[in-house]
Design a protein around this nucleic acid. Structure first.
Lengths: 94, 94
DNA sequence: AGAACTGTAACCCATTGCGTTACGGATTAC
DNA sequence: GTAATCCGTAACGCAATGGGTTACAGTTCT
């Protein structure tokens, strides 16, 4: 289990895609075919990357959709793990 | 991109966890701390594995939460990829 | 027959992804 | 100094989804 809070995938999109290309949020949103608000929410960690958005990212930036979704999974999982102790679950197997 | 429709994670839970242990859906739901309906929906592919459920599964079956979430990610991604052609996205990078 | 297990429909609730519209702040251009 | 951009974000609405409870029908086992 990861010790440190992983960055939300939005930071990664900004650092690895938008910044290097010098693309504005507005331009990127138009290219992705989503509203500026939707992309902004992702970039600022107020929304996650949906499966469809992962495919859009792969199409616009020539990356793998899987990697984006994995970033999101790792992020979600870390937060879920933080609440592990609050879950009352009995063991069914060793 | 995977060619064949991957099984929904519910099938995997049933085949790898419930069946080998001879645990009923009712028993497993109680152990997991969720309603029978919730587990049934997952097992029959009418619901996905949420991050919290992945942690529950890892607690009950001694498996890794990450693997369960990855199964779900692969499943979701495959279905999103099926609609890739319907997405109008412009390329921003080579 | 009776008990246990299962799938599932009908509701309710909270969350979340996405859209549009609109506003205020910051930055840049003229 | 004024106008144009760009950006974050609040306020709505809509649809989907995870989860709970209750309830009914169909199996299977005792």
């Amino acid at each position: 289990m990861r010790m440190h809070n992983p960055p939300h995938p939005g930071e990664i999109i900004k650092r690895l895609c938008l910044d290097p290309l010098g693309v504005s949020v507005t331009e990127a949103a138009q290219a992705l075919g989503v509203s500026r608000k939707t992309l902004s929410a992702i970039l600022n960690g107020r929304a996650g990357i949906s499966p469809e958005m992962a495919v859009r990212l792969s199409m616009a930036f020539g990356t793998s959709a899987e990697s984006w979704l994995n970033h999101q999974t790792q992020y979600d999982l870390w937060h879920a793990e933080q609440r592990r102790k609050q879950l009352r679950v009995s063991k069914l197997a060793v």
